[in-house]
Design a protein around this nucleic acid. Sequence first.
DNA 1: CTGACAATTTTGGTCCGACTATAAGCCGCA
DNA 2: TGCGGCTTATAGTCGGACCAAAATTGTCAG
Lengths: 258, 258
Amino acid sequence: MTEQGEEVDGTALERAPRGTGRRLHGSIAHKIGVAIVSGTYAPGDILSSEVDFSEALDVSRGAYREAIRALAAKGLVESRPKAGTRVLPRARWNLLDPDVLTWAFAGEPDEQFVRNLFELRAVVEPAAAGFAAERRDRDDLRILKDSLARMRRHSLATEAGRIADRDFHDAILRATRNDAMMVLAASIGAAVSWTTQYKQRARALPRNPIPDHARVYEAIAAGDAVAASAAMRVLVDLALEDTASAMGKPGATIKALP
Amino acid sequence: MTEQGEEVDGTALERAPRGTGRRLHGSIAHKIGVAIVSGTYAPGDILSSEVDFSEALDVSRGAYREAIRALAAKGLVESRPKAGTRVLPRARWNLLDPDVLTWAFAGEPDEQFVRNLFELRAVVEPAAAGFAAERRDRDDLRILKDSLARMRRHSLATEAGRIADRDFHDAILRATRNDAMMVLAASIGAAVSWTTQYKQRARALPRNPIPDHARVYEAIAAGDAVAASAAMRVLVDLALEDTASAMGKPGATIKALP
DNA sequence: CTGACAATTTTGGTCCGACTATAAGCCGCA
DNA sequence: TGCGGCTTATAGTCGGACCAAAATTGTCAG
């Protein structure tokens, strides 16, 4: 807990340029958030005192405190008078918060964590597809169809294609008419986004994902919950397989529960 | 913008007594958070300007801003220069955040939302029980057994009993060895806690929940993923039934997906 | 020497008041 | 009519002061 202050003129703690958009406290939170999630500060560590740290970052104490409040709201840290601001154990982190996800994927993503996310997808999304098949209305189907068309037109290699993919999954979650699941959409969507980029980075996209998505759409349109659930299950499994191989561990699958 | 300040001594804007524990900005966030979640401020509404609002609450602008930062971190509001602080649409709320859950259950809980939470439980917990059956170690089983014993000793009518119940479900989630699911434990646990209290409030506890839990434990101990999943499925269904009848809508169930 | 009590001091919590930066909305010009 | 600059309200940032709680240290009685 020491010479962080000296490093300021270097690169590490340089004040983010915050070109018109993000506010100062926001970029501070981002910086510290990434540092925590990536392990620079381990759980249990005590951050330097407010005065020291804010001076090291060359920001006012107020801005720094606001950043800490945001981190505290996401369960990353906890500050108590006299005790200082302490990094909380990983179990308390709000790992499904979109910002935290962003920070987690800012550096090299932890492979185990990616696997965990896919495991969660494999649980939630098939069920969601089933509910969607029962509850979707004309509008949902229209959005799904449109997203699918856009995925066809652009490929997943383009930003537009990835947005379409995300819209597709979002629309399914929304069609469940379940707020709690819709919240997971933001998280899962973010995760999908990031992992998709990793697949691209490995610049080997062995599989054409359109047919998988099309099967899910057909089942939902037909109102067949069981088929939709199964089709989504296949989709997620294949996506994991692609991602895993892109991350260097081919052959990974998730054992199915009957 | 004036005599709200005079009303402070009344009831509405009374500063929370914060008897040694919660910090001031924390209680502000709590108050505004409850107001938003319970609909006092509707999505799209603009909050009064920082000076006005902080004066009305009789706190400094700094404390108010820190509270707003926390709310923003949970997706409840968004503030932009000149535009003010606006309540975000419900879809952006981090509904699974433990604090937000707390605020949601501070007033009369929305029945539809409770149903949605149970639907999510019905998706996640059986799957989690399945994973737990495959991955649990001796320690997990010990904790599960202990929680179960405590549930038996105290009933769910006591605080200790409810804690034991929560520990039981927590232990299962933890045994999945999946961080993403463990995060949901905090959320789901909170939801279970609140709804259990509602069941108590209706002071009719028709069913003895111990056997359901015992079956889940047995299956996990036996390493039988399928049985554990099924047993948990039953447990959640019955819990929903009890809760629904306590809330005045008996007979509610969640259709199963094969 | 030991343990409980008190003073110290560190650190977060709160407040104040001033200034800056941003962008919504208005106004005037083309 | 529509564009572009200007006004201005509002959030953002600053720094400096004081308060409150708690961990540490020191002190004193037993």
